[in-house]
């Protein structure tokens, strides 16, 4: 760690914001979950598997995972116009790709599983919080999965790598500015999603991925705990 480097909120470079996770937050859904990093709060609900309509979209080989990511208009300081945007369309697809590898889609040919993600409050890393919530919601719905997916944003502020960017850090302007690297991993070390905006050398990117591995281990524990707690409640 670079000497004298201070994060705006006083966290250590590899320290995540306080996390919380809970499943069963949307009673109507087949599975649902909330996941938060500090002030970033995401909820996800799963409906399905159900028959895919229209019929021509049915795939007899395997089922389809369909994700939608949406930010609540008052989740940020400058109100967002409700409805889909180019950004949310892209993140929806990225989320599908992040989760596809762990969902055993071959178990339900011709069917679709809908995952609806909503960001209730945003302080950066919203897609990561969304993916974490979605992964939990799928597990809560009892969809066959090989693993959970855990997602984290690693940042490079000037030349310093940090874990779990806030909005203030995302807007970093000093030195080389901010590089934002959201990464999603499974516990067996497979990357299911990675994006990058900014400027970074290969060696440092490798370090960033190591940091992500470390961070996602912590996230996984929180996710696992949330699932265990829901089982406890069911047994009461």
């Amino acid at each position: 760690m670079t000497k004298n480097f201070k994060r705006p909120d006083g966290r250590k470079a590899d320290e995540l914001r306080p996390m919380s996770a809970k499943v069963g937050v949307v009673p109507n859904a087949d599975g649902s979950a909330m996941f938060s990093f500090g002030d970033t709060v995401a909820i996800a609900a799963v409906y399905g598997p159900k028959i895919m309509h229209p019929q021509h979209k049915q795939n007899p080989e395997k089922g389809t995972l369909r994700c939608s990511y949406n930010m609540i208009s008052f989740s940020v300081t400058d109100r967002i116009r409700p409805g889909p945007s180019r950004r949310s369309t892209e993140i929806s697809k990225i989320t599908e790709w992040a989760l596809d590898p762990v969902v055993m889609l071959d178990k339900f040919p011709n069917m679709v599983v809908d995952v609806h993600i909503n960001i209730l409050q945003a302080d950066a890393s919203t897609r990561c919080a969304g993916i974490n919530a979605a992964s939990l919601a799928l597990a809560h719905a009892g969809i066959s999965m090989k693993n959970l997916v855990s997602s984290i944003s690693i940042g490079k502020l000037d030349n310093q790598l940090v874990t779990d960017l806030t909005k203030e850090e995302e807007d970093w302007e000093e030195g080389e500015g901010a590089t934002d690297i959201p990464i999603s991993l499974t516990q067996d070390g497979k990357i299911t999603h990675i994006q990058l905006d900014g400027k970074i050398k290969k060696e440092q990117l490798k370090e960033a991925i190591k940091l992500a591995e470390k961070a996602t281990k912590e996230i996984y524990e929180i996710q696992k705990q949330a699932l265990k707690e829901s089982l406890k409640e069911d047994n009461e």
Partner: peptide, 14 residues
């Protein structure tokens, strides 16, 4: 404005 989120019910669509 009101949005009936697909998250909140299997009946609501995007």
């Amino acid at each position: 404005t009101a949005e009936l989120l697909p998250l909140s019910s299997p009946r609501f669509e995007a």
